[in-house]
Design a protein around this nucleic acid. Structure first.
Lengths: 316, 316
DNA sequence: CATGTTAAG
DNA sequence: CTTAGCATG
């Protein structure tokens, strides 16, 4: 099976404007406050939190979704991430690997203005996902409520909105020495089937840490990592199957040639400073929904985890 | 059984001089270096590392021994303790709860000029004692070499010198909810018998963390701790038995009325700053050897562990 | 290398 | 509260 998948090109979906600085919403003008860079976090004033691009129907973005694997929410909160989130101001944000229960979650994390949904999983301090949404979804399912998945590890939250399903996930890691690759393969299959059914009802926005770098362009060292968790042929092929089933890797479709675009860097050996990374975090979209997409951005400057946030702009 | 024991008084053993500033050795004059207080450690320049007192025969100290429960040697080493030890410059120093093997011990800890003996115990990261001696002892026994004790937890090092045995120990903690009090009771008995036999051969200097505050004066909150590990009647009675067997609590004998003299403060609730402590670390001496003692000092200013070092000055 | 356990103190 | 171990990433 080939790991290459034909993805459509930019022009098929997105109308690239002349960096017009026009935004779907006028939210980012007030950089009068907090000029001072805070502890650990980068200076946020240089970041454009809006989106200059329009969708294929020349419409600006109306909704922003953020996904971030936080690698332990309690430690993450000590790194000035709330200031970033407030500036980013997404309509929905999805966190993976929170490694805590609702009870253990510090109050400062419970940002006002959001409905909060938490799927902590059973094992203490392991995995866990959360979803924050400004508007209340029609329905939210998570964990064992999604019977097809039987998720007891805090890996999935599904939120149904008027026009789409949003699925946030943290896909199982294949483990050191690939010792949990079989578990991963089983998960991938049932998750693929679950998404297929969901997609038949409404378009799906799938986001989160898919724990796979799909192509060689998605990893700094493809040659030396073919036996590493997250870049085995098995995992890459499973992602290909997902795409062939009617999902689109939005970032790669918008930026097919973009190298050095990663969302994860190991803490070892100063990998992030050297940009020795992996693209493991995605926005995958039901193909028929792609015409609405404005942009997909990797916020590689934002610190707080070994993953960085990714941002998705869409016109709904 | 009473927990009170008749200990002789100061004048019986030690001749208190008029703070003569004469020292047994002239070692502490050079405070020209390192005036700057280093990270985490207190300013050492105000400490008198010598001893102004003389023994009962009007002789100054000729030997200094230090004991310190370091509560994890590797973390302890990060707190500028080597600078203190070099200034203190003991002839022998005994460390308890090193929580590492010889292999794991950082090189910086292996101070030149000392013979080093390590009894790490079997369980990784648990317990473990070490002894550093400028002069090579006649014989050193530790762990299972001391058959009477059958110590596989790194609790004892015995060093034989010409005129005495030095025993450094870390007595088992009775545990939360006193769940290891039975183990402790058994240890106390066999340890007492071991010391009795040793004492028949030569005078014994016993030092270390005895994990008991003997009397009410030895603990900040005697009333609320009668069921706490380290202040149960059982543990206190066992210490009394040891004293009745011919050992002397040197500090308490020298300073029978001294309140607020502690060697341990829990890390909880800022106990050390409030001096809510326990005296758990001792120099116990064979009664017939007491005439040689010059002083016993608690270095409560010295940071690096939840215990502080204690210092023993003797004329040998 | 970092996070959150756990056992122990 | 702190140490050091461990499992996991």
């Amino acid at each position: 099976m080939s790991t290459k998948t034909k993805q459509k090109k930019i022009g098929d979906y997105v109308k690239t404007t002349e960096n017009s600085m026009k935004r779907g919403r006028e939210k980012d003008g007030d950089d009068s406050e907090s000029k001072k860079p805070k502890s650990g976090q980068v200076d946020l004033s240089s970041i454009n939190f809006g989106c200059d691009k329009k969708n294929s129907k020349d419409k600006p973005w109306t909704m922003k979704i953020v996904s971030w694997n936080v690698a332990g929410m309690r430690a993450w909160l000590k790194k000035d991430v709330i200031g970033y989130l407030k500036k980013e101001d997404p309509d929905i944000f999805c966190l993976q690997e929170i490694k805590c229960t609702e009870k253990q979650m510090p109050e400062e994390a419970k940002l006002s203005g959001y409905k909060i949904y938490i799927n902590p999983g059973e094992k203490a301090g392991y995995s866990g996902v959360a979803l924050f949404s400004k508007t209340k979804p029609i329905r939210v399912r998570m964990g064992k409520e999604i019977k097809e998945l039987d998720d007891n590890e805090g890996r999935v939250i599904e939120a149904e909105y008027e026009q789409f399903f949003l699925v946030s996930t943290y896909i199982p890691n294949a483990g050191q020495g690939l010792k949990t690759l079989p578990k991963r393969m089983k998960w991938d299959e049932k998750f693929r089937n679950y998404l297929k059914e969901l997609d038949e009802k409404k378009p799906v926005i799938l986001t989160g840490d898919l724990n796979v770098a799909h192509q060689e362009i998605d990893i700094a060292n493809p040659k030396t990592n073919t036996k590493s968790a997250g870049f085995t042929k098995e995992e890459r092929d499973n992602m290909t199957l997902l795409l062939e089933q009617g999902f689109v890797d939005t970032f790669r479709t918008l930026y097919p040639e973009k190298t050095g675009a990663y969302t994860y860097w190991t803490y070892f050996s100063n990998a992030r400073a050297r940009n020795v990374g992996w693209r493991l975090d995605y926005f995958l979209l039901s193909e028929r929904f792609m015409e609405n997409v404005c942009d997909c951005v990797i916020r590689s400057e934002i610190l707080g985890s070994d993953h960085c946030p990714i941002v998705f702009y869409i016109n709904i």
